[in-house]
Design a protein around this nucleic acid. Structure first.
Lengths: 124, 124
DNA sequence: TAATCATATAAGGATATCATTATATGTCTA
DNA sequence: TAGACATATAATGATATCCTTATATGATTA
């Protein structure tokens, strides 16, 4: 799991819906197959599969087939690492995240922009 | 900011869209007024205001009016606390989060459910 | 207090997301 | 290898989100 903004965004988006947040937490307690999760959450099997795939794409869960069944489990250690990188990154975002680099000169340019006089009022 | 699933879900949802994730990170570097952010992100002023409000509702940023301008800044310390609580909570989610409690007996019931024989295959 | 500027809210249309039903794929067993 | 079962993908309709334009609110200043 690469520590880029795109990765973080995917993770947050995945956990940003209640059912997926609860799925993730359930899968932190143990592994479960799709039919069990269907039973626990009272939504259709395709809906469960779809949510699991979103969590998987975000690197939050892994799956293993056992015969007919596919068991999912959470991958919290990787999330922990990612969140630690996020917390580290927000201390100096323009350096930490490639996607933020461009803002450096844009922010410089603000000070010269006559349409934006409010910089004088800023408290740092 | 209360450490409930609902709070976490709101935070993740807020950070789950790229523009808001980048807004949050920019606001970690300094405070900015709406018109500056409009310039930095090249989206309309109402769109910026709306995204800022979502971040604010999630407890991720605060705002202060200075004359005509409203300056926003990030609140990363609170987020750090929240994420620490999340990482702590996922170790024992059914106890840590009130919204997860109900799953305790539901999981027990799975073992007795004849429609779900896969439990035997589970690796713990 | 009227005009101006910054920000917030409302309205409306375009797009994305979600849930369900239907179907395809993959695995096991008789 | 045919039938049954578990899961994944496709198709479709309902809902939610996001953007922009238009308008309202709040604050400053002439």
């Amino acid at each position: 799991m690469e520590n880029s903004l795109a990765t973080l965004q995917k993770v947050f988006e995945a956990l940003g819906q209640e059912i997926r947040l609860r799925l993730f937490l359930i899968l932190c307690t143990n592994s479960f197959c799709v039919c069990e999760l269907e039973e626990l959450f009272h939504v259709s099997q395709p809906a469960i599969s779809r949510h699991l795939n979103i969590l998987k794409e975000a690197g939050l869960v892994t799956d293993t087939r056992k015969g007919q069944w596919v068991f999912y489990r959470a991958n919290p250690e990787e999330l922990k690492t990612l969140l630690a990188g996020f917390a580290e990154g927000w201390r100096e975002p323009l350096r930490a995240f490639g996607e933020m680099e461009e803002f450096g000169e844009k922010i410089q340019a603000l000070a010269q922009n006559p349409k934006i006089p409010c910089a004088l009022e800023r408290e740092r």
